[in-house]
Structure formats: C-alpha cells, structure tokens
C-alpha cells in the first residue's frame, strides 16, 4: 500500500479518518461477534438433548415399522401405505437474530395418520405411525434450530474474519501508511527548511 500512496497532507487526513472508521467498525463487529457467539451457544445447548430425543423417537418408529412390515404380506403393506390421509404443510417465516435472517417453521397437520383398515395390517404399524406423529413437533423444532445454528455459525465465521482483517491487516496497514506519509512529509519539511536556510545564508553573504 505504501508504494501506491501519495504522500500528501490530504491523503494523511483521509487515512486518519479511515483509521477512526475502521476502529469503530472493529469495535461494532467485535460486539456483533460476541453476541452471535452467545446466541449460538444458547441454541447449541438446546440442540444436543433435542437431537438425542428425536433420534431415539425415530429409531423407535423405524424399529416398529420394520417389525410391522416384516410380519405383513408385501401386497397388504403396499395397499395400506400407498395413499396417505394425513395432510401436512410447513410454513416458513423469517426472523432476525443480529441481522441474520433465520427461519421459523410452523406446521399444519390435518387428518388421521392411520390410513388403513385393521384386518390385514399389524398393530405395530399403528404404534410406529403414532410415534412418528408425536416425533414431528420435535423434528421440526430440531430442523429450525439446526438451520438457525448453521446460519449463525456462517455469520459468526464471516464476522470473525472481518474483525481479524480489521484488527490485523487494515488498521495496522493504515497506521503504517500514516506513519510513512508523516515521515515523508516531515522529511519534505526538513528539506524545505534546510533549503530556505541555505538561501538565507546565500542572501546574507
């Protein structure tokens, strides 16, 4: 940067303003980084147990479902499950956490999840589907929180990089340049002074 800079007083004033601005930006971004970290830790704390619960519920559901499917005739399984009666819709709206747009999911479910008769189906299928229905709420909450965590983590990474760039690259470089221009201007000032003194000596002689 020092090679391309014009060592002028205007430039020096401009750079000084930029250093102040960079310092203020650094301060604000540091605060943003800290707040995002706090929010992220809060969400991550909720995700751990929620994920375990959802995994356990889904494991139980799939275990029951496998048992049911293995005990039923394949054509009965196909007939029972091919056309579902449960209608499921998911609405997404966005809220802002530290100017990061994060999704909020809300579901609407209508109809009964048991979509078949009883004579040719296994009771375990009922248990599996009812367990799956119960797992939906937690599953959606988990998806929402994981997406929020993902978006916040990306934003945190970006903010941290910006803070680091300001702290370790932009501000030191600006200060170096200011120093360089200052020394150049001082040198030019000294040149000028010595030239004037020489001229004064010549006039006096």
């Amino acid at each position: 940067m020092q090679n391309n800079v014009n060592a002028t007083r205007m430039e020096l004033l401009g750079l000084r303003k930029r250093v102040v601005l960079a310092g203020r930006g650094h301060h604000l971004l540091s605060e943003k980084r800290d707040e995002i970290s706090r929010q992220l830790i809060k969400i991550a704390r909720d995700i751990g147990p929620l994920r375990k619960m959802v995994e356990a519920e889904l494991l139980e559901t799939s275990r029951r479902f496998m048992l049911a499917r293995a005990t039923m005739e394949p054509e009965d399984t196909k007939a029972a499950l091919e056309i579902a009666t449960k209608k499921f819709s998911l609405a997404i709206k966005f809220t802002s956490i530290m100017s990061v747009k994060v999704p909020q999911l809300s579901k609407e479910m209508d109809g009964d999840i048991i979509c078949y008769g009883f004579a040719t189906t296994s009771g375990e299928m009922d248990v599996a589907l009812l367990a799956l229905e119960r797992a939906f709420d937690n599953l959606i909450e988990l998806a929402e929180k994981e997406k929020q965590a993902h978006l916040l983590a990306t934003e945190l990474q970006m903010t941290r990089r910006r803070v680091n760039v300001l702290e370790h690259v932009v501000i030191p470089e600006l200060q170096e340049t200011i120093k360089f221009i200052f020394s150049k201007l001082a040198e030019a000032e000294r040149d000028n002074t010595s030239r004037l003194m020489k001229i004064a000596d010549m006039i006096r002689a």
Binding site: E75, D76, K78, A79, I83, G117, T120
Partner: peptide, 25 residues
C-alpha cells in the same frame, strides 16, 4: 385373499384419482 388385496389397492387408487397401475399380486 389376493383378489381382495388387489381390489383394495385398485379402489384406493381409483377413488383418490391416482393412476390404477399394474403392480398387483
């Protein structure tokens, strides 16, 4: 038994306006 299983599948498809298909027992 197989006829009724096929019938169940075909009727569910027909009444819900899905393709009838040929994947019957």
């Amino acid at each position: 038994r197989s006829d009724f299983a096929n019938l169940r599948l075909a009727l569910r498809r027909k009444l819900t306006e899905n393709p009838i298909g040929v994947d019957y027992s």
